[in-house]
Design a protein around this nucleic acid. Structure first.
Lengths: 192, 192, 192, 192
DNA sequence: AGATAAACGAGACGGTACGTCCGGTCTTGAT
DNA sequence: ATCAAGACCGGACGTACCGTCTCGTTTATCT
């Protein structure tokens, strides 16, 4: 009962990968705003039409490159040692380090610009920055243990953390590790 | 001892206002990404050069229109009744309402895109969304009253709140009023 | 001793006819310049490769469609009643009628464009417009009867007539029947 | 009572000339069909928009270059020694020489293609090939001297001559000088 | 009361990128 | 081997804006 597909040539995976990799490179080099489809196609060694055939916009290309892990370094993935507060602190420290460098800030703003323009990127933003998968669940666990004391859910808390980072990136201010640490304490600690 | 200029007409305030208003209108109609200097000049009935003479980029025009209050509705300004938690909740409610509508989400994302691209807009983002001026100071007051219990500063707390809103706007998810309310409680309540 | 081919199906005559007919239709609808191989294949319901396999260019397709009589109406074929001058006049009258209509002019110009671009079409142009087959021979007969009086050959005379038509088509001026008639008289009459 | 013109910059004559000259060069190098607006702009060192601003199509550019005498060599201009038949013969000889060379044929076919595609070029075709200005008037003089013997007008006769040349160019056959000479005799000689 | 010169509207200019169309080649699975 | 289908690389199309640069006109200030 398998779905039969039409005859004719099949999508070239080489072209697909070349385009995603070119897009990731150029994203890194020039930032989202200065990306062009033309530039991507040229760098990838493909025709423009091959990009337009499979993606509707540069945002969609970036969204897919993001999913493939071609854009953000692994470093940004949150650690998981079992110690929630420590992991949170380490993750925020990493992000803080990234935001100390102009290049890291630019990268962050580029992602934000992409997310603002393209729904697909937007929906993947939290996942891309690692705010799901770990803290959401783990903060939730902490919340569950002490439901009375923590009226906000884990997802909301991790969103607030991520939000802090984004606000700092947008306002061009570095993220002080101490600040991050304190906020983690507020958010993850039991409340009276 | 101010520097005097030689002669000739002085900057036309009519042109300046026409440009800022045209920019605000077009920002509202098309969003930041689809704004063009050419379109602004045309709508304003001025020459392109008059825009370029006084602003370096469309971002700068928008930044100034933002400062003049031509872009965001007054509604978004935070209330100040004296009851901190109530005011916070009301403000978040307003923002939540705005984010429920597609148009409001688009507006928010447009501001974010502008902030991501233009440093001036970025620096004014918090002010533009009303996160300063009130809560920062007032949360700080609350913090000062009970320094041991609240390890995060007022500014950080209001950033986290604004961040939550931004994350929701970017991920295209509405901001549930309940969520906002709970988060306010977490952030503004004394901690153990 | 004929050369046998290895295996597989033989050229599909259905595809060949479909392509020629599609080409003729599109030639009529859009003119030579706006023909595309892609359009022909689509209209014919064949693959592009099937066109490229058998013809080197769109000009060659048109040349073949011309030979098959799919492009020009039969009307343009010259009459043969035995009365040379009358036949010539009638033929020129027909062409003149065609050139009075914008559509007829466009058709004529399309053929000319095809001839200018493609050698095969060019070589068949005179045949396609019916200038051979009849007048050449018959003018030649007239010439032969009176060699002293007619220093130009029949072929040359018919070329001059066809040339007049072409010049009129290119210069977008109608061909006055009187003009044609007079020229026929000059060219076909005995000279002193 | 002079016509007042709008304010603002005026059309750049340098750009105009550069475009026409580039077009003429490329016409000569590649022929009309393989001309591109992009190529013209590049060769001229102008933006594409500057071409599109002033001309509607590549045909219009070529038409203007033709008028400026940038495309056809002066050689093709008809001589005027006073001896009509000799001048005609010399002019046809020149054209015949041009058509003997492949390059000359290609040039001629290119003009024809341009005329077939573009009305402006078409209307200027006769003028461009020198068939007006001289022979029309002079053949007409000859006709006027002997109205009974010459039922075709000078314009028509020169069209027929030009037509012969065009037919030969399209059918890729050289124009034999003898043929031309004989036809001149037929057309210009008095008729019985 | 000029003369000077900056600001203005208009928009031409050399460019870059857009998103689309088509050319000619190549690949796939079916006949 | 040929066919229908259509993906591929390439390149030109005609359009929209970019940021810079004249133009000719309109003021405000300086002499």
């Amino acid at each position: 009962m398998s779905e039969r597909h039409r005859s004719g040539p099949v999508r070239s995976d080489a072209a697909r990968r070349a385009i995603l990799e070119a897009a990731a490179q150029l994203f890194d080099e020039k930032g989202y705003d200065h990306l062009t489809i033309e530039g991507i196609a040229q760098r990838a060694g493909t025709g423009k039409q091959t990009v337009y055939r499979w993606w509707a916009s540069k945002g969609d290309v970036i969204a897919e490159a993001l999913l493939e892990g071609l854009i953000l370094p692994e470093t940004l993935a949150p650690p998981d040692t079992g110690d929630l507060e420590a992991d949170l602190a380490a993750w925020l420290q990493t992000l803080s380090d990234v935001l100390q460098q102009p290049r890291g800030q630019a990268l962050m703003r580029s992602i934000i610009a992409a997310a603002a323009e393209n729904a697909e990127v937007g929906k993947r933003l939290r996942a891309a920055l690692g705010a799901d998968f770990v803290f959401t669940r783990r903060l939730q666990d902490a919340v569950d243990e002490n439901p009375d004391a923590a009226p906000a859910s884990g997802a909301e808390l991790s969103e607030a953390l991520l939000g802090l980072i984004i606000v700092r990136a947008l306002s061009r201010e570095p993220l002080d590790p101490t600040t991050a640490a304190r906020l983690v304490r507020v958010l993850s600690a039991p409340h009276s």
